[in-house]
Design a protein around this nucleic acid. Structure first.
Length: 802
DNA sequence: GTCAGGCTTATC
DNA sequence: ATAAGCCTGACG
């Protein structure tokens, strides 16, 4: 039997199937979707079995050396999906497979040197010293040392041998547990063996009449109210046996979730639920775009449609943007579906993610709530896929494989003939356009569940503020309202979107800005230990006291970081209790939940934060939302800038007045007339959509055109330019008249980590051959890619144009 | 000649 | 990606 295998060597030349023989003893065990260890040239690598056949065209093949799984980790569906992803995103097949599995399962290669079994001569003097106290030398120990040539010589002569051990990165966690090493029926007779004085031991043993599964030692001690010693002597006498039991690292172990029952649906909700239920009942694929204003009860629709799928014996995937941001969401799902839920998000450790994944793999859970990569959950009988806040940019992976979770979800749903529900108050323009064209089915919720009105929004022109002498970052209206809330004991949320507003260092005399020496971007000031840091390459240096250019002392930090806002708040509202949420304060595990918990408990008056506070928060006492700089994102080199601004403003406005108390929003901006800001303030998605569609049409952007972005980078600018030019010319010559090829253009950040970056953008409507052409480009430059350290990245649907 | 160091090539 | 094999040029 021959196995077709994708090897774990991400390179152009190895991105294909390799044939390996299946040893007879494994013929009945091996299945497609398993990971195996195979010899590959002189080394050993991990491989994915993707097919089993009888014949090979090769003269001779080598055998699979080891199996890494008992159960395939990839279902036939996922194998197929992997190849689809490979084709779709132009990545290596291994990369696609690896992206579908938790990082902990990536192979870990350990190379070591041993004395060859067949060798019985004498080792070279220098080498034999190394083997005095051990029989294997880790490769790292000699890799960079002087003796390496001698080792190599010995290997050549056959005296030494290099071996590679392929292991998983993380092993299942185990704990010591106890079992009866004999049938239960024997318990009574066994107990008689014990001395009459061993009262406690008998007591412990008798508990095993009731205990059926292995029991952890601490648990038994607790249960029997005994000590380690008692148990130890039972083990010594052979009356109990200690085993190692696999356990899960459960991040939610010590948390209890309030069980919730399905709520009564409003008329509007019922109307939205019905078609989804139909799709479930008749098991056909359909993509629904569920557009509901903030607070309209989308989550309840998710919960009830999922419950329906579970009743049919099917499984559900729920994608949420970076879920750690919304512990409230997790609670709702755990509350409704209890232990049927696995949670997957970036806040978990590698081991925790691995364990959650195994729960899915073993069929121990029916629902997964997770970030982007959860779309690959190895369910076999998917009933529904839900993507909450479907417009969120975090659904697009910005590394290879550059996929969008929405596309993968729809692909999987087609296979499983099940519905996909895209939920959002502010759908992505692409999605809404598809709904308009009846590609998706549009379901709308226009009212908030409790009939609360949308908050009143006030736009404040910061130019006016400046003219009237207010140079602070808080406008008069915002300041007054903050004071008002403080007095009333209500809470406020302040949003500062830092993107485009980082703190950089500028000399007020000569205008010099401190840049990264390796990237064309200014360094960002970090208050902790007074450092200047590059966000792209990690370079850092001390913040200078005088201008490096003109030695002036008038060198100042410019921009508005959350830290600065916090300081200013402390000055103008010294009594306000402020919680700051940004990358710095939420880095530690669980910090998010802790801070939000504190805010929810009323331990602070103001929650100040970046993007991360815009989503999903639902606090009763929040009646004021302030956006400090609404146009921060508006001027980024990105055709989605207006859309992002509109979405963020709408999103964050929805945090105010969700309950009894009426909400107010203050938006501070330097461009109050901009339509994103105007329409967001009127909660008017429809008008925004019309206006933005006009802009997209005019400039030839999605959803009117598809775009593909090719990024080329190299240490030498001339090289980058010539390659980019060749690529653009090639595309221009081969694409249809109606397509537009732009470039070569320097990227928005023309240099990162000492590499120059140029790009070429393709805008097109129909181009069935584009994939082939792009592969052709990669092939043409494949030599330079490996040899000359040239980099070409292709994004078939870019969301970041940098 | 020998040998280190760069370039090419194959990996079932 | 990576290691082995081939080629090349410097040195003795």
């Amino acid at each position: 039997m021959i196995a077709k295998i994708i090897v774990d060597v991400p390179a152009n030349q190895t991105d294909r199937l390799f044939d390996y023989g299946v040893p007879e003893k494994w013929e009945d065990l091996i299945e497609p979707g398993m990971r195996v260890v195979v010899p590959f040239g002189p080394r050993k690598v991990q491989g994915f079995v993707v097919d089993l056949v009888e014949e090979t065209e090769l003269e001779k093949v080598r055998n699979i050396q080891d199996m890494m799984d008992v159960d395939p980790v990839l279902t036939p569906e996922l194998i197929e999906l992997g190849f689809w992803l490979t084709d779709e995103t132009l990545c290596f097949a291994v990369s696609a497979f690896q992206a579908m599995l938790p990082a902990a399962m990536k192979a870990n290669y350990k190379k070591k040197i041993v004395v060859a079994e067949t060798f019985d001569g004498k080792l070279a003097e220098e080498v034999s010293r190394w083997f005095e106290h051990r029989n294997e030398i880790p490769w790292e120990d000699i890799k960079d040392s002087q003796v390496l040539p001698i080792f190599k010589k010995e290997i050549k002569r056959g005296a030494l041998e290099s071996q590679v051990v392929v292991k998983e990165k993380t092993a299942p966690k185990t704990q010591a547990a106890l079992i009866l090493p004999y049938p239960k029926e024997e318990l009574e007779s066994r107990m008689e063996e014990l001395n009459d004085r061993a009262v406690k031991q008998k007591e412990v043993l008798s508990l095993f009449y009731e205990i059926n599964a292995p029991i952890a030692i601490p648990e038994l001690i607790e249960l029997a109210d005994t000590t380690r010693g008692t148990i130890k002597s039972l083990v010594q006498k052979g009356l109990l046996k200690q085993i190692e039991q696999e356990i899960y690292r459960d991040p939610y172990k010590f948390k209890s979730f309030k069980p919730s029952k399905p709520l009564d649906l409003t008329e509007e909700q019922r109307k939205a639920v019905e078609p989804i239920m139909n799709s479930l009942d008749e098991s056909y694929h359909n993509t629904f775009l569920l557009q509901g204003v903030t607070g309209s009860g989308k989550t309840e629709i998710y919960l009830q449609t999922i419950a329906h799928a579970l009743n049919q014996g099917k499984e559900a995937i729920v994608l949420v943007p970076e879920i750690s941001l919304t512990p409230q969401m997790v609670s709702r799902f755990k509350g409704r579906f209890g232990s049927d839920v696995a949670v997957m998000h970036s806040g978990l450790s590698k081991g925790e993610k691995y364990d959650e994944w195994r729960k899915i793999h073993r069929g121990e859970v029916k629902v997964v709530v997770g970030a982007r990569s959860a779309v690959f959950a190895p369910f076999k009988n998917l009933g529904i896929i839900i993507i909450d806040e479907e417009h969120e940019s975090s659904y697009k992976q910005e590394e290879t494989p550059r996929y969008h979770a929405r596309d993968v979800a729809i692909k999987r749903a087609k296979y499983h003939r099940c519905p996909v529900v895209l939920g959002s108050a502010t759908p992505a323009l692409e999605s809404f356009a598809r709904a308009q064209k009846q590609v998706y089915t549009l379901l709308q919720l226009k009212e908030r569940v409790n009939k609360r009105e949308m908050p009143d929004v006030e736009i404040v022109d910061m130019r006016e503020e400046l003219r009237s002498g207010n140079r602070s970052m808080f406008s008069k209206p915002l300041f007054d309202k903050l004071i008002d809330r403080l007095e009333k004991g209500e809470q406020s949320v302040l949003l500062l979107n830092r993107r485009g507003y980082s703190t950089f260092l500028i000399c007020r005399d000569c205008g010099y800005v401190l840049d990264c020496p390796h990237c064309d971007i200014s360094l960002t000031y970090h208050k902790i230990n007074h450092m200047m840091k590059c966000h792209y390459c990690g370079y850092e240096q001390r913040a200078p006291k005088v201008c490096p250019n003109c030695t002036s002392e008038h060198i100042r930090f410019f921009g508005t970081g959350t830290q600065r806002v916090e300081e200013e708040l402390a000055k103008i509202l010294p009594d306000a209790r402020v919680i700051r949420m940004d990358v710095d304060t939420t880095r530690r595990k669980g910090a998010h939940e802790k801070l939000l918990g504190q805010f929810g408990d009323g331990k602070a008056d103001i929650l100040l934060g970046t993007q991360m506070i815009a989503k999903g928060l639902d606090f009763e006492k929040v009646t004021l939302v302030g956006v400090l700089a609404a146009d921060a994102m508006l001027h980024l080199p990105d055709f989605r800038a207006s859309e992002r601004t509109f979405q963020l403003l709408t999103q964050v406005s929805g945090r105010a007045g969700r309950h009894e108390l009426h909400g107010e929003v203050v938006i501070q901006t330097y461009t109050p007339e901009h339509y994103s800001i105007q329409y967001a303030s009127h909660h008017d998605f429809d008008s925004f959509y019309v206006k933005e569609m006009q802009a997209r049409k005019l400039h030839g952007y999605p959803p009117f055109y598809y775009i593909t972005l090719i990024n080329i980078s190299h240490e030498e600018i001339t090289k980058v330019l010539s390659v980019t030019e060749k690529i653009t010319n090639f595309l221009k010559a081969n694409l249809s008249e109606n397509s537009i090829v732009l470039g070569p253009v320097a990227s928005a950040i023309p240099r990162i980590k000492d590499r120059y970056r140029y790009q070429c953008m393709i805008k097109y409507k129909v181009e069935p051959d584009l994939n082939r052409l792009l592969k052709e480009i990669l092939k043409r430059f494949s030599k330079e890619l490996t040899k000359d350290n040239l980099q070409i990245t292709i994004d078939r649907n870019p969301h970041m144009l940098m």
